[in-house]
């Protein structure tokens, strides 16, 4: 643990970069994750996370074949995520009965396209695992700036449009009657989700990203009855969990993504258990009428 603390405080060290990255992303887990869980669109976030592989694959492919060195995997990931968000958003707004089918299709096609792009990229060293389960310990300082900018934009938009977004999540029909442009806000929410997913894919990989969006927010929502309280609580929880997770992974040399997620799951269960215990206590302290 002491070794971890020393590393964290060393400027520019891998552990410091990883910790900073996870702290930045925690704000996204908290704010966007809370909307996603409250609106019950976690499966949409999962589909977007998986479809991101198409963008990553294309970026790697384009670098190898067309010499597009500017085409970083994260750029491909952003484009793929936004495109999937728009497709899913359009389908769920206008062709509601086919929503689940399209989500599965986007999920599978995105992954397949990505795998094929990677297969045909000669320069690719075959380290697919880092995309799938994350590579937080390979974060470069430049990534940190991109993550920071992306995170800031997402969080500012979420806070700025807090009231209309909440209304659209809670009661779409009434929001529409009050002149709120429901399709626009729903699309905005999906795009913000997709951008956050890209951040999380950097940290925890495609497969595990969804757990990071869902778990802290679910814990926050379980503990409070107000959306922005849940956002704050989820953010703080995510910060603590990811820092501890990185410390754990560094100390005993295990992958960071799974370590963070197991801690998140543990704290979700703790919140759940605490609420349950509280409700039991409240029930037992009720006055008994004879």
């Amino acid at each position: 643990m002491n070794a971890f603390l020393q590393e964290v405080l060393t400027p520019g060290s891998i552990v410091q970069l990883a910790t900073l990255a996870s702290l930045i992303a925690s704000v996204n887990f908290g704010v966007v994750g809370t909307y996603v869980v409250a609106r019950r669109i976690t499966y949409i976030a999962a589909a977007i996370a998986h479809s991101v592989l198409a963008g990553i694959g294309f970026a790697v492919f384009a670098r190898a074949h067309f010499g597009w060195d500017w085409c970083a995997p994260v750029l491909g990931a952003i484009v793929a995520a936004v495109i999937s968000a728009i497709i899913i958003g359009y389908v769920s707004l206008y062709l509601r009965e086919r929503e689940d089918t399209i989500i599965s299709v986007v999920w599978a096609v995105g992954m397949s396209a990505g795998l094929l792009f990677l297969y045909y990229s000669p320069g690719f060293n075959g380290n697919l695992e880092s995309f799938l389960v994350g590579s937080i310990l390979y974060i470069a300082p430049a990534d940190l700036w991109i993550m920071g900018a992306l995170g800031l934009v997402v969080v500012l938009l979420c806070l700025f449009f807090y009231n209309p977004l909440m209304a659209v999540c809670f009661d779409e029909e009434f929001a529409r009657l009050r002149g709120v442009n429901v399709p626009l806000y729903y699309m905005l929410l999906l795009i913000l989700t997709s951008l956050s997913v890209v951040l999380l894919v950097q940290l925890a990989g495609i497969v595990l990203a969804i757990a990071l969006i869902v778990l802290p927010a679910a814990a926050g929502l379980h503990a409070t009855g107000k959306l922005w309280h849940a956002m704050c609580l989820a953010t703080v929880l995510a910060m603590i969990q990811s820092t501890l997770g990185i410390a754990w992974s560094y100390t005993v040399e295990i992958p960071a993504g799974p370590a963070i997620i197991l801690l998140s799951a543990a704290s979700y269960l703790a919140v759940f258990g605490w609420k349950w215990w509280q409700s039991l206590r409240a029930a037992s302290s009720l006055p008994i009428r004879s």
């Binding site: 409250a38 019950r40 107000k226 959306l227």
Partner: peptide
């Protein structure tokens, strides 16, 4: 709408 939605 979701009866558990966190809204006052």
């Amino acid at each position: 709408f979701d009866p558990k939605f966190p809204i006052t």
